[in-house]
């Protein structure tokens, strides 16, 4: 729509103090809302493992203790949820996807896409280009503390430059794919890629 319709009488209650520029349609929040399609699974780290899969081959599988022993990285980043909240300067710790590839002896990703599989049946698809080069990690700590179950603990994907549904909670398996396939939300009306700066919320955006 070229001519925006001014909403008579609508005034911003925000933007009072040089707020950081947000992606279009987003607003700032200071708490950490929870969005999930179903119940939060009850996962004990003693029973937990995470695997990296290429076709029928398991490239790696780590128990909790093994995963904790991998190189750890801490990042500070803004996160953007498709439901329109943005949270600034969140601090995460985990294993970068680059380090995970190194650990299994891969110099370069074998496929161009990946599907993340999670407890509870959730999936999300991502291009490899968005996971490497320090752009993504498997996070196990938030603000210095173990990741709470409601926020995806014990481990979630963190791909902060895309809408937050791509940062799949309760991550258990990463599967390389030669061709892109839609994941859970991507099959249910949400955008296949999800760039907040281009406001790719829904299919066709």
């Amino acid at each position: 729509m070229d001519q925006p319709v001014v909403s008579r009488g609508f005034r911003s209650k925000r933007r009072t103090s040089g707020a950081a520029e947000l992606p279009p349609g987003q607003y700032l929040t200071t708490d950490f809302p929870v969005l999930s399609a179903g119940p939060t699974p009850d996962i004990r780290v003693a029973d937990w493992n995470i695997s990296l899969q290429l076709g029928g081959t398991l490239l790696g599988r780590w128990t909790w203790d093994e995963f904790e022993a991998l190189p750890q990285t801490t990042i500070k980043t803004d996160i953007h949820c498709v439901t329109k909240w943005t949270k600034l300067k969140t601090v995460w710790q985990g294993v970068t996807f680059d380090d995970l590839l190194r650990v299994v002896g891969l110099d370069a990703p074998p496929n161009a896409f990946i599907m993340a599989h999670c407890d509870g049946g959730y999936t999300t698809n991502l291009p490899l280009a968005d996971l490497i080069g320090g752009r993504a990690m498997i996070a196990t700590r938030y603000e210095g503390l173990p990741l709470a179950p409601a926020h995806g603990g014990p481990a979630r994907l963190l791909v902060p430059h895309l809408y937050f549904w791509k940062s799949a909670k309760w991550l258990r398996r990463l599967r390389f794919m030669p061709k892109d396939e839609p994941g859970f939300w991507e099959s249910r009306g949400y955008h296949n890629y999800g760039d907040p700066w281009r406001e790719q919320r829904y299919d066709g955006d």
């Binding site: 809302p33 929870v34 179903g38």
Partner: peptide, 23 residues
């Protein structure tokens, strides 16, 4: 939703939508 799971209902039969708190 956690009470429903404890009651033995199938987690996949429980759809949730959360409103805030989000300021």
């Amino acid at each position: 939703s956690s009470k429903l799971v404890k009651l033995g209902f199938d987690p996949l039969a429980i759809k949730t939508e959360r409103f805030g708190p989000s300021g």
